[in-house]
């Protein structure tokens, strides 16, 4: 599960100051920067973004399907100990994530949302469009 011997500094020094990208970046790191940081100006088109933690968890759930992730060329989960421990770990992870989504959505909307259907627990392909993603901040 964990990487007890991994010392940050070793990996740190191995990283190049000018690389082609961020190898060790996980989805949460990426979303919290791209969706929330950078120069913030109004522009002409106003949209509301979901809570970033909620988005992160939902996307993690979405691409927790190994096949689909491979198809898209995404491999961050291969370095993610909690997801790479096999199919069983994935199912557990999925359940935990869905519970967390339910909690977050309940917190945001002030009402208890139903936990998403349990019927794709063993499906290879989660639904393409999650049902409850709109929010009114």
């Amino acid at each position: 599960m964990t990487q007890p011997t991994a010392r940050s500094g070793d990996r740190f020094l191995a990283a190049q100051p000018r690389g082609t990208g961020v190898q060790s970046a996980n989805l949460a790191d990426l979303l919290e920067r791209v969706l929330d940081k950078g120069i913030v100006i109004a522009g002409d088109i106003r949209v509301n973004l979901l809570d970033i933690e909620l988005l992160t968890i939902k996307i993690r759930l979405l691409i927790a399907s190994v096949d689909r992730a491979r198809e898209m060329g995404i491999d961050w989960w291969e370095h993610d100990p909690s997801l790479s421990s096999g199919k069983r770990g994935l199912a557990l992870e999925n359940r935990r994530l869905r519970e967390r989504i339910g909690e977050l959505e309940a917190g945001r909307t002030g009402r208890r949302t139903q936990s998403p259907d349990a019927d794709y627990e063993d499906d290879e392909t989660p639904p393409a469009r999650p049902r409850r993603t709109r929010s009114t901040p």
């Binding site: 991994a6 010392r7 940050s8 500094g9 990996r11 740190f12 990283a15 190049q16 100051p17 000018r18 690389g19 961020v22 060790s24 970046a25 996980n26 790191d29 920067r33």
Partner: peptide, 8 residues
């Protein structure tokens, strides 16, 4: 345990 990401 420290974890580093970057460069961003």
């Amino acid at each position: 345990r420290l974890e580093l990401t970057g460069p961003w």
